[in-house]
């Protein structure tokens, strides 16, 4: 990714950290919310972690996913503790395939769990339980409760319950901001603070490990032409002397936070909270990755986002 700051922009700072006059460029995705419940939070989280494993980037994982938040028993369809997970794909058709794969391999297999749709108001629906039911080898059954069909699949511990229909919405992927810091320790501390602040933000997940990306990428490769994405050399501090660097003087490390969300306002709200938390000692500036506005329809202007937060 590149950044395209506008020239001669006035300086904007939060607690001494410059907010660059640039924007994060995000693109449309299709998203689903899956609610996993279990006998206790431990097993709901366990299933959710498995489900969101190897789901950092659609480039190689086919899906981006993360844990949205833990749910109290009063918030789940079966009155048990739960976790909500968001999953995103680039196209509409593949989202159902990814859900079937991941629910089938990571939730069906996990003790005491059940699996429900978290987007009951979504107009677009995916038939998920109907595909998973065949694991029951003819012994499965269904129940309609309050107008929703659920499949009961017999397993060695009892039954796995999965909802038939899951909602699908037009989501947003690739919201991001960059933390440019004086040291790797300062960058990590700020990134962790940002992730902690954004944790539980409604409708948003951070699909990368711990919510943080160190391997920010650019499109394609200069030497390895077959690569879809390669290292973002403009932000790699060890290449400062070898490549047209975008790292300001005094910056020795950069980390990226990537956000996927069910809608743009949710991403903007989370970015506002995260950027504010990242503005701390040792951080030089906050920037964002974009392609000059040519690739993604969603532009999150950092200063505008932070201004709206102040106004609110």
């Amino acid at each position: 990714m590149r950044r395209f700051p506008s020239a001669r922009a006035p300086d904007v700072q939060i607690r001494g950290v410059a907010i660059e006059d640039t924007f994060a460029e995000a693109f449309g995705m299709r998203g689903a919310r899956v609610i996993i419940t279990a006998r206790d939070t431990r097993w709901a989280v366990e299933a959710a972690r498995e489900m969101t494993g190897f789901a950092t980037s659609v480039i190689a994982c086919k899906v981006e996913a993360g844990i949205e938040r833990e749910l109290a028993p009063s918030e789940t369809p079966d009155g048990r503790p739960g976790v909500s997970v968001l999953l995103f794909t680039m196209d509409s058709e593949s989202l159902a395939k990814r859900l079937i794969e991941r629910i089938g391999q990571t939730v069906l297999t996990c003790v005491t769990t059940a699996c429900f749709d978290g987007l009951p108001d979504a107009d677009e629906r995916m038939s998920i339980g109907k595909s998973l039911r065949v694991f029951g080898d003819g012994f499965q059954g269904s129940k309609v409760i309050n107008g929703e069909r659920y499949w009961r699949i017999p397993v060695m511990e009892g039954e796995f319950l999965v909802q038939e229909s899951f909602g699908k919405v037009k989501g947003v992927g690739g919201g991001n901001f960059l933390i440019l810091a004086e040291s790797d320790e300062a960058a990590l501390g700020a990134a962790q603070a940002a992730v902690d602040a954004m944790r539980g933000a409604p409708g948003v997940v951070l699909p990368f490990p711990g919510g943080i990306v160190r391997s920010g990428s650019k499109v394609g490769g200069k030497r390895h032409k077959f690569m879809i994405a390669t290292t973002n050399d403009a932000y790699a501090p060890t290449l400062r002397a070898l490549t047209p660097s975008l790292l300001p003087n005094g910056v020795n490390a950069a980390l990226e936070i990537v956000l996927d969300g069910l809608d743009a306002p949710s991403i903007a709200a989370a970015m506002r909270v995260g950027i504010d938390a990242a503005c701390r000692a040792g951080v030089h500036s906050i920037s964002a990755g974009n392609y000059g506005g040519k690739l993604g329809p969603h532009h999150f202007h950092l200063r505008k986002i932070m201004d709206e937060g102040t106004a609110a």
Binding site: K143, I145, R152, G158
Partner: peptide, 18 residues
């Protein structure tokens, strides 16, 4: 067997809530 039927849990939550 003796077990916790998951669809009963959903039914109970529905009856309690709605």
């Amino acid at each position: 067997c003796t077990y916790c039927p998951p669809h009963i849990a959903v039914t109970v939550a529905h009856l309690r809530t709605h």
